[in-house]
Design a protein around this nucleic acid. Structure first.
Lengths: 181, 181
DNA sequence: TCGACAAATGGAACCATGTTCCGTATCGTA
DNA sequence: TACGATACGGAACATGGTTCCATTTGTCGA
């Protein structure tokens, strides 16, 4: 059976409200605030998005997809596999640093963000794995860092973006530079 | 006027309980738990340590001091300033990864941890600054990363230590390797 | 030794936030 | 229109930080 019209309307309203709240207050914005913005009760938010991660996923799904697809493309376009990897990581960093608190949320200790974690793992990790493997095969990289650790590390470096005197991009560039032995 | 004897006794008990709680549940251990471990009321905890950061600082002060002093020493002992920097960062990482949640707490967005932040800045940042400057003068480093960003980045990489397939030490080593141009 | 007073205590109470639950309202269909 | 399924809202509960003050307890001078 199709969803009821009011259900879809509310679902959309919550999504929009969440997107706005995330921009204003980060991905940890209080559920009550999101509900209030959407003009619904908290129960309705939970009905449509059982966990916060579901909301985050819904809000950023398109951008995550785009990032994943860009990876495939860069590999064929780039001058070398390592260059492709570096560019792809730049895209990944751009995505993370513009989402207040997202990088911090990716640190896995909170079961709350399980499905977000899953999405990153399922969609982005394979891309990173291919790029990294290609760069390794071409002999441009000599390090034992695996794709997961690399993504996790880059994500960590992006946490706390916004602090004065701290530029996540420069740090990530340095890390990537360190991948060449 | 000197502190009353019972006050000192309770202060010590809280400190000890906090140290145990931090090991068991990380530096975000509930205040109530710490109070219960110490056999005092929560009010007593707050009396002696107004913020959580004060507790953390008190518990780890010795180790932070030791790390700072090691920096001075390494500079005179090391074969090169860059080697000294690398070794010192190893010490710093060892300190952080063995303290569940400490690295995460260092990300500055929580005003709760202000005094912890201050201590790191006051005690460790000068050490890092000297080591980095020495390495730069000796021509071993060519990057625009400042001492604060470096420490912050290393701290970030240490957050989430304990996750399978993620080794903070390897990532930090790679980052440090990237400092050489 | 003892009384008085300041210091210290404990935990109830308050706030903020996440989460659940169910009586009520609404939609879609027969 | 009437009825059953669906969805809604927000009160209520859980957790954890923080404040406050009536009560207890050291300490010191007499």
């Amino acid at each position: 059976m199709a969803k009821r019209a009011d259900a879809r309307r509310n679902s959309d309203a919550v999504l929009e409200a969440a997107a706005a709240a995330f921009v204003a207050a980060g991905v940890e914005a209080p559920v009550r605030d999101i509900a209030a913005r959407a003009g619904v009760g908290v129960g309705t938010v939970y009905r449509h998005f059982p966990t916060r991660a579901d909301l985050v996923v819904a809000v950023y799904l398109h951008q995550i997809e785009a990032c994943a697809e860009a990876g495939e493309r860069l590999l064929t376009e780039g001058p070398t596999p390592f260059a492709a990897l570096a560019r792809w990581i730049d895209l990944f960093v751009d995505f993370l640093v513009t989402k207040h608190g997202l990088a911090a949320a990716l640190r896995g200790d909170d079961p709350q963000f399980e499905s977000l974690h899953s999405l990153f793992l399922e969609r982005l990790l394979p891309v990173c794995t291919r790029l990294l493997a290609a760069a390794r095969e071409s002999g441009e990289i000599r390090t034992e860092i695996g794709p997961f650790a690399l993504m996790f590390g880059v994500g960590n470096l992006c946490a706390g973006a916004g602090v004065p005197d701290y530029d996540a991009r420069t740090l990530v560039s340095t890390l990537v530079a360190g991948l060449r032995a």
